[in-house]
Design a protein around this nucleic acid. Structure first.
Lengths: 249, 249
DNA sequence: CATCGCTGTTACAGACTGTTACTAAATCAT
DNA sequence: ATGATTTAGTAACAGTCTGTAACAGCGATG
């Protein structure tokens, strides 16, 4: 039911654990680095900074974003435990990274990383794979921003959150949303009000219910997936759909 | 005046010509390949196809796009002479590529490309640089789609077209627009009507004038750049601005 | 335990863009 | 050259999303 695809930034915690031995994945390179702490709201790096380090997220969530001239902010993605950030090639970071909650990361110097990659050719496909995933995610986001309406955007977002770190509990899937509504809005190209309104409607239709401020319980994943507009999903819950009015574009 | 930055897909025609000698850039790898022709409207490859080849555009323009479930199309970029496409890592193309006009390309097998890269380490930074440019372009597009209004989108698009292949002629810059209005609309996340309306307004304000169907003459580049919303530009034509009403997000 | 403050929600007027329909222009074919 | 077909531009209308504002809820603070 909870297929995992389009993983944002390479996530490999479990795979790494299975083969506990040698570095067969990028995360292994960080294993020996000390863990650093970052309080909620603090920046890991800024857009335009010299990209001297790469980071592996050990715990917590971060937002990566760009600020444009008049102060508008565009969040290009969220990072979770297991993600690696900073592989961004070139000499400067393309975006800023900021802790949403208290975060623990491991830091690796870019030079050390490059050396490892050079000496361990098996890792190169992994780097490419990572970049490819990032590229695919960016393209999916362009599709979302180009021609999805508010409901589709919110459903797509929630679906991705589920696919990344799903927690089945009782009836429905518990989804953690550590970021604020403003973060979600800036990520989806909407306003906080529209995000709120949309989630309220989804609640009224029995598709989800809120669990505190930073979590929701998804009761009808099939419907949610359908409403997301990516018709890759054809589960057995299709009959659940109550109202599929989607005014595209 | 016409600064070149955020070039979409690596463009190196002129640089390659300066140093006529050995492969110091990716384009050189294609030099010995035969030229293939593609008629307007024909596809070079489809999204999901096994990515067996890379292509260098010798002449003409192509659109790269994704089609989603209900038939909506998202154009993620345009290709011009000098561009290389298909470095898309992974085994499958992330998008489809289609000739806008009659096109000439050189084809290179992925295996041959990989072999060249492996044997000629100096090229690897170039590959990374290429991917980085593509990533940066994707992020710029996300910014555009996230929080720019119709006018800013159109101006951004025109500005990029100018920066890529500018032709100064008489008073103003002649900009070729080989693609249709629908292409532009699908690229900017708008409809053809909105594109038309916006360009009409720009014409009425004396910022540009149309030259046939597939070209325009930009009369006030400074104003255009300002209206694009990327405030990187502060030229000497700022005084030209007549009306900067932009209802941001 | 009460108050303050921030975040999130709801309501409503308004703006921008999308939709539809029609006209004009340019390209292609005969 | 002339007519048919495709593409582009224009206008009226409708719809979604926005932006402002007031309200509610949760957490923090004292």
């Amino acid at each position: 039911m909870l297929q995992t695809k389009n993983v944002y930034h390479l996530k490999g915690g479990t795979n790494a654990a299975v083969f506990g031995g040698e570095p067969d994945c990028l995360q292994a390179l960080f294993k020996k680095q000390p863990v650093e702490h970052l309080a909620a709201g603090q920046s890991l790096f800024y857009e335009g900074d010299i990209a001297k380090h790469l980071f592996e997220v050990v715990e917590g969530s971060l937002r990566i974003f760009k600020i444009i001239s008049d102060g508008r902010r565009v969040i290009t993605g969220f990072l979770q435990a297991g993600d690696i950030v900073g592989v961004s090639l070139k000499n400067h970071y393309l975006y800023s990274a900021e802790a949403i909650v208290d975060v623990r990361v491991r830091r690796l110097a870019r030079k050390a990383f490059d050396a490892e990659i050079a000496s361990w050719p098996d890792l190169r496909p992994e780097v490419f794979s990572h970049l490819c995933d990032e590229m695919a995610a960016a393209q999916d986001q362009m599709v979302l921003l180009s021609c999805k309406n508010a409901e589709e955007r919110v459903c797509t977002f929630l679906r991705k959150q589920i696919e990344r770190g799903a927690g089945l509990q009782g009836n429905g899937v518990l989804v953690e949303l550590p970021m604020t509504r403003l973060d979600i809005a800036d990520y989806l190209g909407l306003t906080i009000e529209t995000v709120s309104r949309t989630m309220t409607k989804l609640t009224q239709r029995g598709i989800l219910c809120s669990v505190g401020r930073h979590a929701i319980r998804v009761l009808k994943y099939g419907v949610l997936a359908q409403l997301s507009g990516d018709d890759e999903y054809y589960g057995d819950e299709r009959a659940q759909i109550s109202y599929a009015g989607a005014n595209h574009h």
